[in-house]
Each structure stands twice: as C-alpha cells, then as structure tokens.
Design a protein around this nucleic acid. Structure first.
Lengths: 227, 227
DNA sequence: CACATAATTAACCCAGCGGTACATTTTTAT
DNA sequence: ATAAAAATGTACCGCTGGGTTAATTATGTG
C-alpha cells in the first residue's frame, strides 16, 4: 500500500571485528557436532549457522556448499585422530607388550572419540565417496600400519609371532571391535541390554579382546588341533 | 476464463484390482532399498512412491508417516535376519566345532545382508530410538544367544572351554568383526586399499577370526604368560 | 590517505518434499 | 440389492531449508 515504507531502515551494526581463522574454526566445530548428530542430509545449515557466532552466509563463503563443509569436517576430524595415534611410541617394548599396548590404546581412543566414530559411520553410509575425493587422507593412515608392521617384524624375528602375522589384518581386527563397540552400542543395547557397557565390563572386554589378538599371532597353540 | 473448462475431465481408469497385502509388501521392499541407500532423512517419499507400483497416498494409508514406514522396514529386516539365524542347528556338533560353525555362519550372513547392515548403521546413527520403541525386537534376539549359551555350557562341561567363557561377550565379539567387515568397507578401502576384500582374503580373514574366537575360549594356553 | 580486496551482514528466493483433502472405486457384510 | 467399509487415485498445499543477491564494513598496501 505505502510505497515509501517498503524500503526498511538499514540499521546495521556499525562496527564489528574481523577474525577469519576463528570464524572458520567456529563453523567447523559446530558443524562437526551437527553432522555427527544428524548425518549429512539430516544436519541443517540454518541450525548450524544459528549455533555459530557468525551467519549462514559465512558458511558458504568459506566452504562453498553443504558438501564442502562436510568434507572439511571429515578431513579435520580424521587428521586429529590420526595425529593422536602418531604420539604412541611402543618401540621400546617387547613385541607382545607393544601389541598389547597398541590394542588397548586403539580401544580406548575409539571409546573416547564418539564424534569421529559417528562421522565415519556417516561417511560409510555414503559409501566413502567424500573420503575418496580427499587427497591427503590415505597418507595419514600409514602411521598405525607402520607401527604394526614394525611390531610384527620384531615378533617374527624373535620367534614369538607366527609367520603369517599380518599388520593390515591385525589392524582390521583391532579396529573392528574397537569401532563396533562404540558405533553399534545403541542397537546392541536395545537387543541385549546395557550390561556390557558398564565401566567394569568394558575393561573386561578390552582385556579379553587384547588377549585374543595376541592369541592370533603368538606361537604356542594350534587352533587346528582342537575339535 | 472459461468456467466450464476448470473442471477437468475425470478420465480415471475405470477398473483396477485391489491387493492390500501385495501393495504393502511392494512398498516395504522399495522402502527398504531407499532407506538403506539414503538413510532416514535422505530417503525421499516421492521417490519411493514413484518406484512403487502404487501411489504416495498408499504409503500414508498403510504406514501413517515417514517414520512409521521406516520402523516397519526396520522390524521386517530384523525379523528376516534373525529368522535365518534360527535355522542354524549345531546341537549335534562338538562345542569347538559348533562354535566354529556359528562364527562362520555369522560372518557369512553379515556379508550377504548388505541392506540389513546399512539399516542397522542408520538406526545407530539415530541412537536406536526406533528400535527401542519396538516391542518384539528384543525377543527375536534370544535365539543366537541361546545357541551360544548352550555351546558354552557344553564346552565347560566337557572341560574344553575356560570357565569365564560368556555367551554375550562372544556374540559381541563375533558380531563386531562380522559387522565391521561390511559396514566400514568403504572407509577402510579408502584408507588402506581394497586388497582385504578380495574373495580369497575374505576367506582368510574369516578363518583367522574364527581361530581367534576359539583361542579366546578354549583352554590350553595362557596369554598372561606371554611377554 | 586512497583504494582494492577480503570479510561480513541482512534480506530474500524458490524448489523440493512431507503431508493432506477429497473424490472414487472395489470389496464385504447384511 | 444395498449400504458400509476398505482401498486407491489425483491434485494440491505450506513450509522447510539449501542457496543467493547485494549492500556494507574492515583491512592491508603503496
């Protein structure tokens, strides 16, 4: 009706700071929570923006689009977990003790990184297509394999590990129960109760699983002889 | 302009069959694929309807809303997998052979049920909230635990299994690598290559993992004595 | 200080998608 | 037969949410 009233008064904030690095980090931190909580399609850009100390526009400014933001989140959390793996030093331990240490550390690291677990689950739902695009992710993962290979080699040299002991297979195995223990807790609890997720039972499980990994590589018994 | 033309000719199909059961099943089959492929929020009702031989209206008629459809899909696939577990009969085997058989069957069942795996992953992303609502799911899961308990009891009675052998822990362990092997294949491949997913390596892995489970329960070696 | 450029804000757009209204047709019960 | 109930089709709606436009302010550089 009133033509003059159409143009609203542009009463903007007249002053604000600039801090690109902090803004980027802020967005990534919030986005990590939201993607971990709701998945790629489930997460809401408006909601992420709202929880941020900045605006939606900045998300698109820095990350292009929703997928770009998701990729950045994924790479960041992968890098942070792998970096913590690199800190492990088992060079001074005997092969058996070194392996024991690696298994326990992996189990605990997974238990303490729920966001990482959830994001990896989500990425698997998407068939790993975003991880595949990433160039530097494969390089990151060498560290843990290198450590396991070293331990295997030493164990074989000392005559305590069987010849077939393989670093990649060990990693597959160790990761599997460490990951599953966190990732599938909801459905496992729903089916079988929460008992095994008590602190005590988790410690038991960790020990049992560790023993088992050792049993898989240490010479001294022959599963084929059992019946 | 033309008032008379507003009302379109209702040239409907003048005859069609009714088959409620088939329509319901058709919807569930398509919905299973779509939810497994795209997740709860990622799946699209219009798309599901399009792939169905019926209309969107029928989805809401039978399943109330998107969540209702998702729950129905989840219960259906859970039931089908558990039903196949019940067919396993290891009562005639020795405890060691029975356990071996159960582990291998579980590993293979998971490898051959990608939709189930993906839906469970998705349900875990949603913290198992829909599974918790279900009344008959917990009952379904008794079967496999019962079998493991029976095997454990027999193994202990015969003096071949250690005293601490626990059915639930065993199930946790067996499920973990069986599930992870399928669920995390995309990210694992992206990080470490596809090598271990070849047919041959999978068979090796299955055997190795089975040996390990046995090592965890069979008396005859002592992990604590290793160093 | 001037000016280009980087960073930021506010307001808006619009397609896609979950969900519904209502008419219509088949089946079933009496 | 006939009416009630179950099953189905068509068209539509409103809002959510990813993405954009354009203006504005801070910052670095010669």
């Amino acid at each position: 009706m009133d033509g003059a009233a159409e143009r609203p008064k542009k009463t903007r904030k007249t002053s604000w700071k600039k801090d690109p690095k902090a803004v980027r980090e802020d967005i990534l931190t919030i986005a990590t929570e939201e993607f971990a909580a709701h998945g790629l399609s489930g997460a809401n850009i408006n909601e992420i923006a709202r929880k941020t100390s900045t605006s939606k526009r900045m998300i698109y400014y820095y990350f292009e689009d929703k997928e770009g933001l998701y990729c950045a989140v994924l790479e960041r959390i992968y890098a942070s977990l792998r970096r913590s793996e690199e800190l492990l030093d088992v060079a001074g331990l005997s092969p058996v003790q070194a392996l024991r240490c690696l298994v326990e550390a992996t189990f605990e690291a997974h238990a303490n990184a729920p966001h990482f677990i959830r994001l990896v689950m989500i990425e698997n739902i998407h068939n790993g297509e975003y991880l595949q695009k990433s160039e530097f992710i494969p390089k990151l993962n060498r560290s843990i394999i290198d450590k396991l290979e070293d331990v295997c080699a030493r164990g074989k040299a000392e005559g305590v590990f069987r010849d077939g002991a393989d670093a990649l297979e060990l990693h597959w195995l160790i990761s599997s129960f460490s990951f599953y223990n966190v990732s599938n807790r909801p459905t496992f609890s729903a089916s079988f109760g929460e008992a095994i997720f008590s602190e005590q039972r988790q410690a038991d499980l960790k020990e049992r699983a560790t023993d088992m990994v050792l049993a898989a590589v240490v010479i001294g018994h022959d599963p084929k002889s059992w019946n």
